[in-house]
Amino acid sequence: MTKNCIYSIPESFLALLTVFISSCLFAQQNNSDPKIQNQFWKNVQFGGGIGLGFGSGFTDISLAPSAIYNFNEYLALGAGVQYKYLKQRDFYASHLYGGSAIGLFNPIPEIQLSAELEQLRVNVNLEGSNTNSQDYWNTGLFIGAGYRSGSATIGGRYNVLTDKNNIYGSAFMPFIRVYF
């Protein structure tokens, strides 16, 4: 009978020690400085793009929200999502959706250099033909530069992965980028 009692004392002690250490760890976690927690959100900026285009039988609607984290005044990294609807009457309708990762470098406050990796799923439905519909992934790697004033940047970017099956009309694209 004493044999059972000897084994129960260390188990009880171990259980109490575990509870005590756990409560100390949680107490340390709950007492963290709110200023440090809020500092993360002070470095986050939100932005993106909205586009509407209408013409003679043509519709182009796009939505591309994004967010960046400013590590310092020179470097920011972020991510975004994108959706685009294109339709040419009596020819095709297309849905494009996906995501992107972006890196921004500001060597001086007025100049912004960027690199953006974009991965889009492309669904094209050709009118009058179910056999010619296409579903595929399109990858773009854009290198860009722009003039920055406050939270807005205007510039151009070039898709270095352009090939004959590119979903864009040109490898070079102008842009206006705004983060709040």
Results as ranks from 00 to 15, higher is better:
Gly140Phe: 04
Leu16Ile: 02
Val122Glu: 06
Phe142Glu: 02
Pro109Trp: 00
Asn132Glu: 10
Ser133Asp: 14
Ala93Tyr: 09
Gly99Ile: 04
Lys42Gly: 07
Pro65Leu: 11
Gln37Val: 11
Ala76Val: 09
Tyr69Gly: 05
Ala76Tyr: 05
Gly49Arg: 12
Asn130Lys: 10
Gln28Arg: 13
Phe46Glu: 05
Arg121Cys: 00
Gly53Pro: 04
Val44Phe: 03
Leu16Lys: 12
Glu110Ala: 13
Lys42Ser: 09
Leu25Ser: 10
Gln82Arg: 14
Ala79Tyr: 11
Gln39Ile: 04
Ile21Ser: 03
His95Thr: 07
Phe40Glu: 05
Ser56Gln: 11
Thr139Met: 10
Glu73His: 09
Gly103Ser: 08
Val124Thr: 14
Ala101Ser: 05
Leu52Phe: 13
Ala27Tyr: 03
Ala67Asp: 08
Ala79Met: 14
Leu17Glu: 15
Val44Lys: 12
Val122Pro: 04
Tyr92Ala: 08
Phe54Asp: 00
Ser62Met: 11
Ile111Gln: 03
Lys35Asp: 10
Phe91Trp: 06
Gln29Glu: 11
Ala115Val: 12
Ala101Phe: 12
Val44Gly: 09
Arg89Lys: 15
Leu17Pro: 00
Arg89His: 08
Gly103Met: 11
Pro34Met: 07
Gln45Leu: 07
Phe46Thr: 12
Gly53Asn: 06
Asn138Phe: 14
Lys35Cys: 01
Thr131Cys: 04
Ala79Glu: 03
Pro34Thr: 03
Phe54Ser: 07
Gln112Glu: 14
Leu113Val: 08
Arg121Gln: 13
Ile61Ala: 11
Leu75Phe: 15
Phe105Arg: 02
Trp137Ser: 13
Ser94Thr: 11
Glu118Leu: 13
Leu17Val: 10
Gly80Asp: 02
